[in-house]
């Protein structure tokens, strides 16, 4: 599924200046523990998390994740946003609780990959 479809349905916002919304999202993962994310995500996943700092972006880069949806009031730090931009990772923010975000993604047909 295209990133654009997800951004539209969830009305996601982004601190990034340019975004490639034509990129494919092939699965999803939810976790705030970096060791868990590095072990269990797949390339193409969208990652739902409270965490957003430069190390988060390093994890997303290494695992070739498509995008990160940051839950809650955690405004992404400038350092994380610029690093994500240079690595081609999209960052989004939302006021929705994580449960709602995941529920909507599942409803759209997205699945977690084991």
């Amino acid at each position: 599924m295209k990133l654009k479809a997800i951004v539209d349905v969830l009305s996601l916002e982004s601190p990034m200046e340019t975004l490639d919304l034509e990129r494919d999202v092939t699965g999803g993962y939810v976790s705030d523990l970096l060791s868990d994310v590095i072990a269990h995500t797949h390339a193409g996943d969208i990652w739902i998390t409270l965490q957003v700092h430069p190390n988060t972006i390093a994890v997303a880069t290494l695992k070739e994740l498509t995008a990160i949806i940051v839950i809650g009031e955690n405004a992404p730090a400038e350092a994380a946003v610029s690093k994500a931009a240079s690595e081609g990772i999209a960052i989004f923010t939302t006021d929705l609780p994580a449960f709602e975000v995941v529920g909507k993604l599942y409803e759209m047909g997205l699945r977690g990959q084991s």
């Binding site: 705030d32 523990l33 970096l34 060791s35 868990d36 590095i38 072990a39 700092h53 190390n55």
Partner: peptide, 15 residues
Amino acid sequence: EMGFGAGMGLPNIRK
């Protein structure tokens, strides 16, 4: 608070 400290690093490396 940054998401480290799950105690999974070394086990992940070994696996």
